[in-house]
Design a protein around this nucleic acid. Sequence first.
DNA 1: CTTAGGG
DNA 2: CCCTAAG
Length: 591
Amino acid sequence: MFLFLSYVSWIFHGKIVVYKLVRVDGNGQLVPATDDELMEVEGLMENEKHETHIVADTGQALGCISNEVSSSGMPQLESSEGLSQSENTEADTEKLSAQLEGTVPFGAQSLTDDHATQPGSVGECLKPLDGPIQGGSSTSAGCISSTPDFSKLKGEICLDNLSIKELHEVFKATFGRETTVKDKLWLKRRIAMGLTNSCDVSTTTFVIKDNKLVKKDNEDSANNVNLATGKEFQAVAVEFNGDLLNSLSSQIDEHQTVSAVRSGNNVVENNFANEDLAADQRAAKRVRKPTKRYIEELSEAESKEYSGNSGRLLASTKNIGIRPLPSESHGRLARNAPLEGRTVITRLDSLGGFGIQVPCVYRVRRSRPRKNVTALLKFHPSGMSMTATFIKRGLDVHGSQMGNESMSKVLEAKSSPEQTHQFAAESNKEKSSTNLGHNMELKYVDPSGDTSDDNVVTVPTAKGGIRRKHHRAWTLSEVMKLVEGVSKYGAGRWSEIKRLAFASYSYRTSVDLKDKWRNLLKASFAQTPVNQVASSRKHPSMPIPAPILLRVRELAEMQAQVPSPNLGASKLLACGGGGGGSVNETRPGYL
DNA sequence: CTTAGGG
DNA sequence: CCCTAAG
């Protein structure tokens, strides 16, 4: 197997993030993990010893990936018009993403909190094979209905002997989306993780009760042994990155993998693009006219040599600090002759039997808040200067041995995640002039968008101008997190929620949260008619699961009743515990 | 800067 | 989602 690694570094909320991208020969592009994935995984890491699980899960996901059609059910929008990239690549990526998307186990409790957990059926496994799981309201066992059958999440759930079909049902109820994965084990684990809000699920038994996994046997403690604590693992990761990744990816067959090593947080992640990412990529291909912003940016620093080419090419070749590893000599990768000093990395792709060199595609920044870029560049003189220069170096010096060591050293110099978070928050306010930023460089460290690709649509405005409008569909998980946040901190305290509950989602601004909440309210009060005529379209957008809407309504009413009796935590606690079902602090890292 | 509300 | 007015 051929693969190459490359480094992309940028700053996210003041943190240096190093991504190690792995690309398997024959497949498509490099896909850096998005910051939110990163953060999410990080969140997981903070809680438990997830390293093993994540890795393991990855393996599994990959294992069954080939059977999958398209989890998101989204049509493949990209056409021959796209880059010469193989469609397979895209498809694979999407599959991976879709599967990975669900990996985030948070919020499961909100789903089951008040509505799904009923004492009634406790203590009994559902008997799947006897018919439709649990009568309830439900839409038949066919997975065609668009509304998840949440009754399946009630009480104790015994995933063990469910049929695939049934697992799909449960999956849908759990994650609010469908899956086409046919691997039972994967489904079970996935669901289990979702329901238990943890990656720590058994590999053998899947009985979930009250959001907790009922372990029936002494399971895989053995699995954890190797990887031990995060720190040890980190050491390994840092030192043996290459090998680690190599072996990792060889474990997972020939599937494209994107794994990230983030030394700063002592974690090694094997990251696949998540749903959003996939969506973004689709969009990226769809919208191939270079955005105005692109043009601006390009004109700023880029030479004109490419101006004749399509913007797409420009965009895709606009990578920096990407350094193919020696393995490039495997032939699949070829480095073009430098064009006016710039090196274009291309890869040999076979298209229709012909070997074609196409530029490697890297994700480009999307940056809504460009202003923030500058803000983020103003590092704390003392704390960040080193980092800053480091980044600069990393970006500028292509061929230099910007090894893992140096990277990790810098990263290690940084403090714990929490502190880093705070620092990040702080750093926005900081005003130092560590001036390293020509926009050119900044672009690549832009925390807010880089990974999150553009779903940028230019909208002509009445006033003659055209403005970009990015759209990023809200994930179910995001929605749940939002609800959770509102229940914790109260609606209206968007910035709080943003900071505390949405730290992982860089692209959601407090305003976004507010807007989304508004929409949720609208949706929740607009009673969901028994049957939506909306069934006309296949997957316009997953409707928000009823329980969530219910909860939204509850919170709304509740908070309306109690406008703002007092300030301080008491209120918040009261709110949380009162109606909506409190949200337990399962994440030590947050507050 | 953060919220709220309109578009 | 964006923009803007208001605290």
